[in-house]
Design a protein around this nucleic acid. Sequence first.
DNA 1: TAAATTGTTTAAGCAGCTTATCTAAATCGC
DNA 2: GCGATTTAGATAAGCTGCTTAAACAATTTA
Lengths: 168, 168
Amino acid sequence: MNRDLIFDEVLLLLPALSRGLGRPWPKEMAEIEEIVGHEFPVEGVGGSISVGHVQILISLAKGPRSVGHLAESVGVSPPAATQLVDRLVEHGMVERRPDEKDRRVVLVDYVPQMHDIARRIVESRKERLESTFASLTDEEAEAFLKGLKLLAEGFGVAFGSPGCGEEK
Amino acid sequence: MNRDLIFDEVLLLLPALSRGLGRPWPKEMAEIEEIVGHEFPVEGVGGSISVGHVQILISLAKGPRSVGHLAESVGVSPPAATQLVDRLVEHGMVERRPDEKDRRVVLVDYVPQMHDIARRIVESRKERLESTFASLTDEEAEAFLKGLKLLAEGFGVAFGSPGCGEEK
DNA sequence: TAAATTGTTTAAGCAGCTTATCTAAATCGC
DNA sequence: GCGATTTAGATAAGCTGCTTAAACAATTTA
């Protein structure tokens, strides 16, 4: 396949994907609803949790994080992070707690029962990913990741790794 | 590299990319500004044109399209398409014209001078893409496209190809 | 020709983001 | 120790892009 044609297709696919990935993904919402619903029924979770919220849930997997840290990690402004956390608190998924060492910072952490749920949400995401890419060989999967990284780099994407900025 | 680790990274990269790709890309805006500015100075184009607008400009490369067609092609609702077209009309980039054969439909087309400009915008996008992926071998590039397609499929993304739905 | 359908626009509303501003706590300098 | 600066977070106001519901005009169907 001609390299030029490849990029033609990529060019067309990217905006569509950006849209697709960026909106609350009904299938996943249903899953989260189901997972959360079993543990402690939170009304109206479905439809009201979005990419940013999931990113935060993933970020918290490595332990409590400050709001500022989350903002950086997710790649949004601090007020936006406040807002995302607000929503998660409303849903009873995370809680705020003052940092003992610096009472300016607010630490965000899973609500106790959420630890396991968050793990499962991440896992379910990964499973979906695995099944989506089932037909890819290992080499292809690796090439895909490589491309993704280049893209992120090229587009100046704030790397939203939960591990990033461990301590700045 | 372990397949599991690959998907871990992909999992983290996707939301960040979705954000990054989804917002008006400063570098590109500057380029468009420059391109458009040379032809006919349109005030305030920079910052006010977004992914959807570019998608429409790309879609129109194959000829005039109805609003409904554009909506489908971009993957948004008809009112949203109307809005996107509105903005482009404001900027003097496209124009509306009633369809002779069916006076319900409104055809959208480039303003005459835009033909060349739109071509260059698309080209500049592709060039940036090519340079971003310069370090990829042909095989890797192909694998990347394959992955992208799987992703789009898996996420139920409306394929935003301008060629889609040529006639339904 | 009346009724239903189709294509577009208008209206209302929401989610998510931004910047600017404010408050509280910590740190620096003397 | 005490005032001035810095830092973390929250609040406010405003914008953009999207959605659904409703309105309207033109076409097709019966």
